[in-house]
């Protein structure tokens, strides 16, 4: 690694980068990221074209995007092409990122997915005209009202929900257990699992959806 995300201090508010100092150093600390860190970095890139903030983002995400690309393409050359194209979009389109609508990691994932999709279309050189722009709306749908989890309490207490609960994807079951059985707040779960707060909320909604679907199936 030429770059180490811990060693680069941006020009921008370097104090915001030290928030992990109070946490004991352990193996986890290398993968742990403070909530809001990448969102802040993106807004510095958007507003000031801040190269130090960008280098931070790059140091963290480029190797992970490469790993993602290796998984999807199975070869390094295309994986790196995807990394370069994705990170170029991150640099050029940073202004389009809206931190009130979601995490930086979600935004970067969707860019990488679209880059990969269009790369594959070209590789297959089919005359297909369907592009990533057609498939994934590059904007925001109207905001949904939060359906509020209180209405789920009765659903979750139903006895027949238990077997379906066991079959939830591990990541969702873990979050549901902490929130509904251990009665932890979403923020506590986010801190404990070192995942963004938005991810906690998303996993709960996805799990409730699965449970509702499973119960519906048994009803019909």
């Amino acid at each position: 690694m030429l770059l180490n995300s811990q060693s680069i201090q941006g020009h921008y508010g370097s104090s915001t980068l030290k928030s992990d100092a109070v946490k004991p150093m352990n193996e986890e600390s290398t993968t742990h990221t403070r909530t809001g860190q990448w969102e802040d970095a993106l807004s510095y890139v958007a507003v000031n074209q801040d190269k130090a903030a960008y280098a931070e983002l790059f140091a963290y995400f480029a190797p992970r995007l490469k790993a993602f690309g290796m998984k999807m393409f199975g070869n390094e050359q295309q994986a790196l092409e995807m990394v370069q194209d994705t990170m170029l979009n991150v640099w050029r389109k940073a202004r389009l990122f809206d931190p009130t609508r979601g995490c930086a990691s979600t935004w970067i994932f969707t860019i990488a997915r679209n880059v990969r999709f269009d790369m594959l279309r070209k590789k297959q050189s089919r005359k297909d005209d369907i592009s990533a722009d057609d498939l994934w709306y590059d904007g925001n749908y109207p905001e949904q009202e939060d359906s509020g989890s209180h209405q789920w309490d009765t659903l979750l207490m139903a006895e027949k929900v238990a077997p379906h609960f066991e079959r939830l994807p591990e990541a969702q079951r873990q979050v549901m257990t902490k929130v509904y059985l251990e009665e932890k707040s979403h923020q506590e779960v986010s801190d404990e699992l070192a995942i963004p707060l938005g991810t906690v909320k998303s996993r709960i909604r996805l799990a409730l959806d699965r449970l509702r679907e499973a119960l519906d199936d048994t009803r019909s």
Partner: peptide, 26 residues
């Protein structure tokens, strides 16, 4: 949107590939 958040989280938690011999010229 929720599924994309999950994919983004997987990306964020992904372990970088270990390539000591040929690190790309980042």
């Amino acid at each position: 949107q929720d599924l994309a958040v999950e994919q983004g989280t997987q990306l964020q938690l992904m372990k970088p590939v270990d390539t000591q011999d040929s690190e790309p010229d980042w």
